[in-house]
């Protein structure tokens, strides 16, 4: 997994609540057996005016100019600002894969759906929870200032705005450790092989039918 330490990135405001993973990456792209290449189809139904299918040349498709992703001032954004319950719905990890492939490294929202939140950390993405009033203030700041960037420091757990305002954020200690060091969960868990084996033997003795 890619490490995450510091980021100074342009902010992309997606002003909708309950953005679901079907919207982040529509199902037709889930037919891929790969983990990469989903970026051009992130938010496909909002981003393009035609219907997207896998294998299309996305560079020739008609763009929905009104959709925020297509506005020139937000090109190259690495921080996605969103509203509550971001990433609800399907558990598809293709959603964080698509965001990551598009270039997003940090998401800021008041709340997330659990599975999506979890999936982000496995892919080097940092989802940050800030309370709704702060998120609202950030939406206003982005609106008012072209080229609005934020500095995100994971080690210090702080976001710094251009005017010097800082926002502290919480992050689970284990997940922070994994992100900062780019650690793979499986490798970490396999350090406990003996404990897993011991548990399994005990479990098998108590409920043998589970191992039939």
């Amino acid at each position: 997994m890619r490490k995450f330490t510091l980021l100074d990135g342009l902010v992309l405001p997606l002003d909708r609540a309950n953005v679901d993973t079907d919207a982040i990456i529509p199902k037709q792209f889930l037919k891929s057996i790969k983990r990469s290449g989903f970026g051009p189809n992130a938010f496909d139904e909002w981003r393009y005016l035609d219907h997207g299918e896998p294998g299309m040349d996305n560079s020739n498709r008609p763009l929905n100019k009104d959709f925020v992703l297509n506005q020139p001032r937000f090109q190259g954004a690495q921080i996605l600002l969103a509203r509550e319950n971001f990433g609800c719905g399907s558990s598809r990890e293709h959603a964080p894969w698509a965001l990551e492939d598009y270039g997003i490294r940090v998401i800021i929202a008041p709340s997330y759906a659990d599975i999506f939140f979890n999936n982000c950390f496995k892919n080097g993405l940092l989802p940050i929870k800030l309370d709704a009033a702060k998120v609202d203030a950030l939406f206003k700041a982005v609106e008012a200032n072209e080229g609005f960037k934020l500095k995100v420091d994971l080690a210090q757990q702080v976001i710094t705005a251009p005017d010097g305002t800082t926002y502290k954020f919480e992050v689970d200690a284990f997940r922070k450790h994994c992100l900062l060091n780019g650690l793979d969960d499986i490798g970490l868990t396999l350090q406990h092989v003996e404990e897993i084996k011991a548990f399994e033997a005990k479990h098998r003795a108590a409920q043998p039918w589970l191992f039939a």
Partner: peptide
Amino acid sequence: GIGTSEVEH
């Protein structure tokens, strides 16, 4: 429900 990284895990 889990994501694909967790499926692998």
